[in-house]
Amino acid sequence: MNITRKQFLGLAGASILVAVSGKQVLAELEGERQDGKPRPRKQYAMIVDTRKCSTLPDCTKCIDACNSSHNVPVIPNPEHEIKWIWKEEVANVFEAQQIPYLETTLKERATIVLCNHCDNPPCVRVCPTGATWKREEDGIVMMDWHRCIGCRYCMAACPYGSRSFNWIDPRTELKVLNPAFPTRTKGVVEKCVFCYERLALGQGPACAEVCPAKALIFGDLNDPQSEVRKMLGSGLTLRRRPSLGTGPNIYYIL
């Protein structure tokens, strides 16, 4: 087979191009990062100790702190509610772990739910605009409220019901405004962002900070010395629907 140098170089160039773009497409489909980094440098996580939380059944301090620091309005219509962190009954949160003989008081014990900041978030996979993404440096599932088109595909994809859509204008429902954090417009989806704005200032999430029972423990899973890692290593904890493979990063002590 005769081949000139020019043809050879052209062919080689084209093959490299095909190989590289093919690899990128595959990496994209598998949700891998292209720079070859295996994991985020940090992976923030939270442990909810429901035993401590339930000692104060009427407490809503974490919810209030979150709402006021993030301009989350309180909307009376339950179908239009915006919720970043809220309470649900244990039996509804852990359907698979239901024990029929569990006493009603324990079944109805409230626990805290919020975005799970999954390792492998389905909401990020389905978003058609990249308005939600997993941040490389700390594993937070972030949101860009200026890019979101409000298609609500992420709400269908989230197995935890963690996402809220602004069915109506949220600004008219806000009683007090925190000028340090953006408000949202109607027609976009929002959720817990693990207080990225406070983390940037070296503070912890607002909910964990105000909890009087110290029931919310926040930390970095990639740091073996962190409190969360020690707790997860020394006792049994549960995650919501782990069999789905989403890798939720909120752990529960029941």
């Binding site: 949700g31 978003c127 058609p128 605009t129 890019r147 979101c148 088109i149 409000g150 027609g187 976009v188």
Partner: peptide, 29 residues
């Protein structure tokens, strides 16, 4: 029907401005 279901219809071209090949919605479009 997609258009009337969108919460922020004025931003619909974001689907083309920031195409996400891992989103089935991009391929549907």
């Amino acid at each position: 029907f997609i258009f009337v279901d969108i919460g922020q219809p004025m931003r619909i071209l974001n689907v083309l401005l920031y195409p996400q090949f891992h989103s089935v919605m991009f391929w549907d479009m």
